[in-house]
Nucleic acid binder design. Structure first.
Lengths: 227, 227
DNA sequence: ACAAATTTTTAGATTTGTCTAAATTTTAAT
DNA sequence: ATTAAAATTTAGACAAATCTAAAAATTTGT
């Protein structure tokens, strides 16, 4: 990847756009709108248009006027490399520096832009090649492959079924802190005991104890069903 | 230092100027010239003038037209905080990720700009609060204090005196690789056996073996004399 | 299908950090 | 003490990334 770090310079701003387009595109191949990008990045649509042209010129996106943008293969690879760095740094912060999962995002947003292939590969090795980040999101490998776990929202699980909590949908500090306070953590075994029709809240069994949780919470927790 | 990371925003460019002014100022309180800064940073004197005004406005330097700049106390603290980060990251790269001492500078130049007090303090703790970086330079503590070792250049040592190699003056990759190739490393015990008047080269004893080194090399190695 | 609402783009301006070329100040030399 | 040389600053320009306001295209509602 000599190419990357030297010949083809990508600015921090470009990287942030590419990452955002990747997340909004959500592996479907349809176009992402200027407005959606602007809203997500807290910027103006006109700024997005300018950047869309630049990214198209550099080969990261296909841009159709008035339609939106989609990442090229090159753009997807670039996005995956940034996401890989972001998530590996998050694991590093939690595993090696005892950050809590609600503190890692901000710092990883900075660290993901550090340009050194050797650095991130060494971090990967130091962490023993983790497959998931502290929020349960998959970490792309060096060659851009990653395994999306077969998982479902707790709110979508059938009565009496059991599984392991493997991820969060909402990664806001507020939600993560709430989970900590209620001893809900990744790896916990959860069984749906009862569903309340009225407000769609759930009675669950988690690690032995019984718990009542709102729909809002249940619809932001990912569960991997037991085989 | 809440102040720092939020209220008072320092750009990466400003940080690089502050760092350069600190190094050129070399703890003497006299002014650093525009030209010197420009040369060191591979930029133009006119650019330095512009930045000098901005840094003065923000309180980092005292700027006297046609005379030069010197850091204020605030500027010195800022410089020490950047240098602290740079050197701690260098130790991290060597100690935890097995980088060699000639590979760390480039990456540390990027990492030193990451803004998170918790991050750098955690790295500091992880490394067990090192006092010196891989090149033997002192690491400022959180409150900006650091101990400059009592040391001298190998080329300035008297005949028959002995000491420990504690640092390098030239930190270029070329020099560091040369030292590696010749098994010269920090911590080695060195004794001056003979000095050649003609070219000022030295015969030394290092860790048992005898070695002939040029003045160029000897004048870039720091030795701490044995008590 | 057509007018209204929404989305997107264009045009022109701003900020940051840089440059070149010209003007000014300081330093050095005789 | 003048003048020549060197260093420094000013003025004006440029690229990147952003903004606002206005224009153009698309979508929506009836």
């Amino acid at each position: 990847m000599y190419f990357w770090e030297n010949y083809f310079f990508v600015t921090r701003s470009e990287e942030n756009y590419i990452k955002t387009i990747f997340h909004l595109g959500d592996n479907s191949s349809d176009l992402v709108s200027t407005n959606a990008i602007a809203e997500q990045m807290d910027t103006k649509p006109s700024s997005v248009t300018d950047m869309a042209k630049k990214l198209a010129e550099k080969g990261f996106v296909n841009y159709k006027k008035y339609q939106g943008v989609s990442l090229t293969d090159f753009g997807i690879n670039t996005a995956l490399s940034i996401i890989r760095k972001h998530r590996l740094w998050e694991v590093f912060l939690v595993e090696k520096l005892d950050f809590s999962w609600d503190e890692v995002h901000e710092v990883a947003e900075q660290l993901e832009h550090i340009k050194s292939e050797k650095l991130i590969d060494s971090i990967d090795a130091l962490l023993d090649f983790p497959k998931y980040d502290p929020h349960g999101d998959p970490i792309p490998s060096k060659d851009g492959k990653f395994m999306e776990r077969h998982k479902q929202l707790l709110s979508d699980m059938a009565l009496k079924t059991e599984g392991v909590c493997v991820g969060v949908k909402d990664t806001s500090a507020a939600f993560l802190k709430f989970l900590d306070k209620n001893r809900i953590a990744l790896g916990n075994t959860i069984k749906v005991l009862e569903k309340e029709d009225f407000d769609q809240s759930l009675h669950i069994q988690m690690e032995g104890k019984e718990l009542h949780i709102s729909h809002q919470i249940a619809s932001n927790l990912y569960i991997k069903k037991n085989d």
